[in-house]
């Protein structure tokens, strides 16, 4: 019974991963792509690891169960953090959005951060042009 549930959970996980990768190809913008791919692939990997844990519980292989649960928790914690950091870096380095209809709540704070980095004397050669571009947008 547990093995049957494990098969179903692993199948759902693989489907989520494929859908995330299709989103990585089909969407129009780095922000859209990152959100779709990160959410779907994190969910799919966690479901696959839960399936492995179910298989381990069914066959009495307890070390497999414990390792799968630890790995699932780790992926669930770190993958969104990594994507958030990359997208923050993308916004601060001036990658444009495809659809700029909505309100941009991070623009003011991003300008402050860029000014702080320049005041600290960081070697940001390309940041100057992008800063001017963002001021024009604002």
């Amino acid at each position: 019974m547990l093995e049957r549930i494990g098969y179903i959970v692993i199948g759902i996980g693989v489907a989520f991963e494929i859908l995330g990768c299709i989103g990585l190809i089909r969407l129009s913008d780095v922000y859209d792509r990152a959100v779709a791919a990160t959410k779907c692939v994190t969910m799919g990997t966690c479901m696959m690891l839960c399936g492995v844990a179910l298989f381990g519980a069914a066959s009495g292989n307890w070390s497999m169960l414990v390792k799968a649960v630890i790995c699932a928790l780790f992926v669930l914690l770190t993958s969104p953090v990594a994507a958030h950091a990359v997208l923050r870096g993308a916004y601060l380095s001036g990658v444009p959005m495809a659809h700029t209809g909505a309100e941009d709540g991070f623009a003011q704070r991003a300008g402050e951060l860029r000014r702080q980095h320049q005041a600290n004397g960081q070697p940001a050669e390309s940041a100057g042009q992008e800063q001017e571009a963002s001021h024009e947008e604002a």
Partner: peptide, 27 residues
């Protein structure tokens, strides 16, 4: 991918897919 963050995100996703491969191999 047209920009550098695209490539970074793709490398991250590729690494997460490898974890899925490891699950399949374990089973």
């Amino acid at each position: 991918g047209p920009t550098a963050p695209d490539r970074t995100i793709s490398v991250d996703i590729l690494g997460t897919l490898m974890v899925g491969f490891c699950c399949c191999m374990a089973l």
